[in-house]
């Protein structure tokens, strides 16, 4: 369980985070989405006590991270897979983490096995690792203390398709056993496949949060009819919102069966009635973060 309570972070006149609050629940994978520089990494750094917020606070399992007696046993953290001493071997990095946390040395081999780093690879210095191998090593470091919370910043970066699939199954299994997973990404497809809950951040503000099902459902229903004016009126009087999406097309913020019933009662002939499926995460993401995108009117 991770609780973020009205975090604000100011660097001089620049507001990196503006009143950010959300929760990441046990048993669920929470996807933390946002464009580059939106504040994802800053939020995660504050969570683990590396950066002090201007105001607000973050707790993990009910305590400030810095107050955890042995944080590695409760929270697995991967902020940047490349932030490792290039002159150490992968095995040595895991050994150091295991010793710091006080877990038995056999956990090192178990973790190497779990993330599929061979003994030869583990004996190489990290300088010679690909980004994908570093990510695997980072995941191993995060998991070695057998924590119940995972905080991962862009863990899928640099992984090949098989690696991404592996990571997805790993995190799914972890959450299904009751673990809390918070992962940030800008790989929308990845998040869409794995996350149960979504937090969308743009320009340091939370622009949307909720379950994936709810957020993606906001796309609504598409209905095609020659009598758009009549139908729109009926929909409005039913207390629903309809947007014109073309000369004979409406997008209604409701489910198809509701819209279908209204059309039947109004007696308007329909040409087409379907859930506005296609949007998906990418549309939602671009729409929600439109004002904060570098590219301007991306949506």
């Amino acid at each position: 369980m991770i609780l973020i309570d009205s975090l604000t972070m100011k660097y001089g006149g620049f507001t990196a985070l503006d009143d950010v609050s959300f929760a990441s629940e046990p048993g669920r994978v929470t996807g933390f989405l946002g464009p580059n520089g939106a504040g994802k990494s800053t939020t995660m750094r504050i969570m683990v006590g590396l950066t002090k917020p201007t105001s607000g606070h973050a707790t993990v399992a009910g305590r400030r991270y810095a107050d955890l007696p042995n944080p590695g046993r409760e929270v697995g953290v991967l902020l940047d897979a490349s932030a490792q001493h290039a002159g150490r071997t992968g095995r040595e990095i895991l050994t150091i983490a295991a010793r710091t946390m006080g877990v038995p040395g056999r956990r090192v081999d178990e973790m190497l096995d779990l993330v599929s780093l061979t003994p030869t690879e583990a004996g190489r210095r990290v300088r010679n690792y690909s980004l994908g191998m570093r990510q695997r090593l980072g995941i191993a470091t995060a998991l070695i203390g057998d924590p119940h919370v995972l905080i991962l910043d862009e863990p899928a970066n640099g992984l090949d398709p098989a690696g991404i699939r592996w990571m997805r199954d790993l995190l799914r299994g972890y959450a299904d056993q009751g673990g809390t997973v918070l992962l940030s990404s800008h790989l929308l497809h990845e998040i869409e496949v794995i996350a149960d809950d979504l937090i969308v951040i743009g320009n340091g503000r939370i622009v949307a949060q909720g379950t994936k099902a709810e957020l993606l459902a906001t796309a609504g229903t598409l209905v095609r009819t020659p009598d758009t004016a009549v139908l729109a009126q009926a929909i409005a009087s039913a207390g629903l919102v309809a947007h014109s999406s073309g000369p004979d097309l409406l997008r209604v913020e409701s489910d198809p069966h509701v819209v279908g019933r209204i059309a039947l009662e109004t007696g308007v002939p329909l040409v087409e009635l379907r859930a506005a499926e296609g949007a998906g995460l990418e549309e939602m993401f671009l729409e929600l973060t439109a004002e904060t995108q570098r590219e301007g009117a991306a949506a």
Binding site: M1, F22, G27, A175, Q177, G178, G210, E214, T218
Partner: peptide, 28 residues
């Protein structure tokens, strides 16, 4: 979690088995 639309998020896992999230070990 406050959803942007309607119903509250169901935040509990469905399995009844003891979970990592419910673990309350205190580490020295």
């Amino acid at each position: 979690i406050t959803p942007t639309s309607g119903t509250p998020a169901s935040g509990t896992p469905t399995s009844g088995t003891p979970t990592a999230g419910a673990r309350r070990t205190t580490y020295p």
